[in-house]
Design a protein around this nucleic acid. Structure first.
Lengths: 246, 246
DNA sequence: GCGGCGGAGTTGTCGGACAACTGGTACGCT
DNA sequence: AGCGTACCAGTTGTCCGACAACTCCGCCGC
């Protein structure tokens, strides 16, 4: 439990608190223990615990009331929170089904224009590519394509990825994904996609085009995912209202 | 500038910093001044400035590097950030087009099951309802339905809302929206929706079902929005990877 | 030329102190 | 008895100072 100190103390504290809240140790509306109390239990200073709670507050998990206490925000258990990055495997597993992979192809391919632009390589330059259809309890639910720079992840390493966690492979090479920007587009499956997903032509899919970047802003992974629409519920916490309409 | 202290010092500091970053005072990848330096300039303690930066960090606006500095995260100007709440008007205006409204109907209606459940009223109890089609430069782009409790917003007040900012009306009544949980579903427009949006039957739309809540968790607004898919680009910043796949 | 060392600068954590605010209780007045 | 006020314990908000951990870069010795 203590090896979680990958990043910093307050990050691990926040993560542990988040887990405990999600696990239901405190219910929405409940007041969690005071900052000094939580700090004492974890044997850390109040400053660090307070910083952790500040992160959860900005994340909308808890809300503070001056002079009163810190309360768990009401938010349902999100089946699929789009605001968080995730691996498709864990997503499928979170629904209680078993993830699988079919129709996997990988290798070096010439970079398509959009990919080349995002990764910062010349158009047509070779990039590592991985495409596969993920299944949930055997049913085909999402078609995933990934591209990354060859010097980041060699094409020959792609087939041996453990359970498809390309994120973990990149992290091992010092290219941990910090955040991604996603583009959402609904569409109707065309012939090829319909065949790959084993659904009738015209079936509704949600396409997510995403560029993942490391903390320093370097684009490390470009992906395009086609989700069978009725296989998932896509949820999203929206904070604000933002600065747009004040 | 100082009346911004509605919530707390670190919130106003974070907001000011966010504004300055968005305004381009520091570009993506730039290192912002050190915590002591920023604190000195604003005449606050390092603790408060640090707490503010922690919020921006959790929000993905900046990222810290121990021993090095704090850097502005690379994130493009999002045309339509789903992670932030927004009014449809400001969304349309942000694309450089003029928002308009047609087919507006409002009044008290019996609460549909899902709405009653979210608002915490008996099914069929009267709730205030507002439905309208919003236009961008005259083109119909989104069909919006809103429901809220009658004691929160009276049905007779609905038609006189200034430029559709139902959020502002609720805030005036002490029911400022703190966050919302949205559900995304792609669909093909059926007959009625196609007619309202003036598109062919079967046109792709993205449906967003959303429940907005005040800071104390009280649901204040339920809305259902049908967006014409090819009229908008839906963007989203995803942080993480979360705790799912370690 | 090159590699190791060290120092300046920055973020991370700690401990303590007091202010600001909330909620409840006890008290005193009516 | 009822009611309002004052007080008090508890909690979050802000401040200060100190040191640890880490990064970056230039200097120095080899």
């Amino acid at each position: 439990m203590t090896e979680t100190r990958r990043r910093s103390l307050r990050h691990s504290l926040a993560e542990e608190l988040r887990t405990r809240i999600l696990a239901g140790e405190w219910r929405p509306g409940d007041r969690i223990p005071s900052e000094p109390e939580l700090a004492r239990r974890e044997a850390v200073s109040r400053s660090s615990m307070r910083a952790a709670i500040t992160m959860l507050e900005e994340d909308g998990v808890v809300s503070r009331r001056h002079g009163s206490g810190t309360y768990v925000t009401y938010r349902p258990a999100l089946p699929h929170d789009l605001g968080r990055n995730f691996g498709v495997s864990s997503l499928i597993r979170s629904t209680g089904m078993a993830p699988g992979t079919v129709e996997e192809t990988s290798g070096a391919v010439p970079a398509p224009p959009a990919v080349a632009d995002a990764l910062g390589v010349p158009e047509g330059a070779p990039v590592s590519s991985l495409r596969r259809v993920r299944t949930a309890d055997g049913r085909r639910v999402v078609d995933v394509s990934d591209w990354c720079r060859i010097e980041h992840l060699a094409p020959e390493d792609l087939p041996e990825l453990p359970e498809g966690s390309i994120y973990a492979a990149l992290a091992e090479r010092g290219l941990a994904v910090d955040h991604g920007v996603a583009d959402l587009t609904p569409r109707n499956a065309d012939g090829d996609l319909a065949r790959r997903l084993d659904v009738p032509r015209g079936t509704l899919v949600l396409t997510i085009d995403q560029v993942d970047r490391a903390a320093d802003g370097v684009a490390v992974l470009v992906s395009r995912e086609h989700y069978v629409a009725d296989a998932f519920t896509f949820c999203l916490v929206r904070r604000g209202p933002g600065e747009g309409e004040r």
